[in-house]
Design a protein around this nucleic acid. Sequence first.
DNA 1: CTGAAAGCGCTTACAG
DNA 2: CTGAAAGCGCTTACAG
Lengths: 333, 333
Amino acid sequence: MKTVTIGDVAAQAEVSKSTVSQYLNERYDYMGEKTKQRIQDAVEKLGYQPNIVARSLKQKSTKTIGVIVANILHNFTTEVTRAIEDVCHESDFHTIICNADDDPFKEKHYIEMLRAKQVDGLIIFPTGDNRDLYQKMLDGSYPVVFMDRELEGVEIPSVLLHNSKAVALAIEHFVEQGYRRIGMMTTSLKHHTTPRIERVEGYKNTLKNNEIPIHDEYIISVDSQSLQTELEELLHLEKPPEAMLAGNDLVLIETLKYVKHKGLRIPDDLAVIGIDDVSFASFYTPSITTVAQPTFKMGKAGAELLLNKIQMKKEIRNSSLRFEPTLMVRDSV
Amino acid sequence: MKTVTIGDVAAQAEVSKSTVSQYLNERYDYMGEKTKQRIQDAVEKLGYQPNIVARSLKQKSTKTIGVIVANILHNFTTEVTRAIEDVCHESDFHTIICNADDDPFKEKHYIEMLRAKQVDGLIIFPTGDNRDLYQKMLDGSYPVVFMDRELEGVEIPSVLLHNSKAVALAIEHFVEQGYRRIGMMTTSLKHHTTPRIERVEGYKNTLKNNEIPIHDEYIISVDSQSLQTELEELLHLEKPPEAMLAGNDLVLIETLKYVKHKGLRIPDDLAVIGIDDVSFASFYTPSITTVAQPTFKMGKAGAELLLNKIQMKKEIRNSSLRFEPTLMVRDSV
DNA sequence: CTGAAAGCGCTTACAG
DNA sequence: CTGAAAGCGCTTACAG
C-alpha cells in the first residue's frame, strides 16, 4: 500500500498542491465549483488520507495533549481521565495518558517525552518533586494544568476537591450518629500532596469544632502495604476508634479486607466512611457511606482550562478551582 | 520560549546538522571525541529537546500504536489496556487509547484518525461491523491485532480467552456443588461477538456433557439496562434457576444489585459465579467465585504480537492465541 | 571523520 | 480564483 500524498491528489485532479490543501482545510472562499468537484473525485478515487504528522510539523500543533497521572490505581484518576478524554475528543484533541507511578523521575521522563512529541499542553497530577521543571514550563508559557494537587509557589492553576469540606462532611456525619472515637487513615506519600495534608488538617479542625479531643494515634498515614498491620495495631489500642474515615479508595478497600478477614461487622464493630465513591459502594453489604468527588466535573474543568490556554494563547486566570464533595449516606455508619 | 532546533545546536557546536543528528542517534562510529563533547555541551547549554514530529515525518514511524477498545467500562478492557501500555512503554512506544463505545461508526472514525496520525499499528477490540476496513488494512499489510474477539474470514490474528473452557469451569463447579438449575446471562450485542457466542455455546455443551437438560428460558442476553427486569422474570419462573453464571463483570454487578435490592441471600437463595475477576470479589460478602481471565498475559501477548509485526516487518503467523481461564473458588456457590 | 543537499508531506504567505 | 516556492525540524545516502 504505497501512501498517497497530497501531490498525487493534485496530479490526479490536475490542480496544484496548494489548491488541494486549501480544499482539504475547507478554505473554499474563492474556489471554483468544478475545482472542488475534481479534487473531491481525486481524493475518493485514490483513497487519500491526510498525514497529520506532516501537518503538525508545519502548524506546530499536534492537537494532542498529554495527561500524566501520579497513580492510575486510584478510581478517582481513572474517572477524571475519562472525563478529560471526553472533553478533548469533542474538541478534536487526542490524549496520551502516562502513569508516573508516584515516581518523580518517571514523571520527569514523561514530561520530556511528551514535549518532544510536541503535545500542545499537559495535565499533570503532580508528584510534587519536579518544581524546577514545572516552573520552566510556566516561564516558557507552555500550557499546563494541575489536577488533584497544587504546589505552593508554582503558579500553575489546579483543579482540586474542596478537601477540608469533604472531611468535614464525613466526620460530622459520624458525630451526628453519636461517634466520638473517630480515626483516619491515608496512604503516606513522602511528597507532601495536597489531598493528604488538607484532609488530615480538615479532620483535626472538624474534631476541634465539635469539641472532640484529637488523639494522634488515631491518625495513620502509611504505604498501602502497611495498612493491614497498622489497622491491627490501631484497633487493639486500649481505646480503639469506633469509626474510621478512609482517606481514599485504596485505603477503604484495605479496611474492608481487614474487617472481613477479622470477621468484624460494619457498622456495629466499626463504622466506616470512604472518600471516593467506589463502584461497589451501593451494593456492598452493608452499603458503604462515601464522600463522592465530582470526578467528571473536575476532569471536564481541567480539560477546558487547558484547551482554553492552548487555543486562546492568552493568559487565563491562574487561580485554582475547588469542587464540592457530596456525602452519599448509606449503611456503613 | 523559542524552540531550539538541531540547527541551533549545530551552530553552537560549530559542526553541521548532519553531525548533530548522528550524535543524537548514537551513531558515533567514526565521531571524534572532541566533536561529541562539543555537541553535548551545546545540547546542554541550549537545553535542546528533539522534535519527534519532525523525526517521525522523515522516518515514517511514530513509535506510537493505537488501541481501540469496544467498551472501556469492562474491567477486562482496562486491565488488558494497562498491560498493553506496560509492554509498549518498555519498547519505547507510546499508546493512544480510544473508546469506540460499541459503535462501529465511532470505531471507523478512530481507525481513520489514528492512521492519519501515522500510528505504527493498531490493537482493536473489534465491534465486528467494519469488515471492509479491517480487510483493507490487512491487504495493505498494515499491522493490526484483534483482542477479545475474532472475525471469521478476516485473517487478523486475535488474542482470546478460551471461552468454552471458562464456562465449563464455572458450570462444572455448580454441578459439583449439586446444582442442576443453572442459568446464564450475558449482555446482548447486536454484533455477534466471539465471547458471547462461545460462552453461550460452552454453557450448552457443558450442560449436555453433564446430562442436564437445557432450558432456553434460562439463557438471557440483553442490554445491561434490561438486566434487572429480566432477572425479575427469570427468578419468578415456576422453576427458577438456583444458580446463575454472569457472563461478564457488568452482568455480575447487576445481579448483585438485584440480589441486594430483593434481600436475597447468596448462595442460599441464588448461587453466583461471574466471568472476570472483579476487584471486590475477594472482600465482598459473601466473597464471589469467579472465572479469572489472564488479562495481563493477554494484553502482553497482544502488544508483543503487534510490536513484532511492526518491527520485523515480516509476516508473523496469523493464527489466534487462546488463553486459559482460572476458577477462583470463593463463597458465592 | 564530517558536511551539503535532498526530501519526508504538508501549509501558507504571496504573486498574478 | 490558482500556483510556485519556501519552510516546518529532522534524517540519510553520498561525497570527500
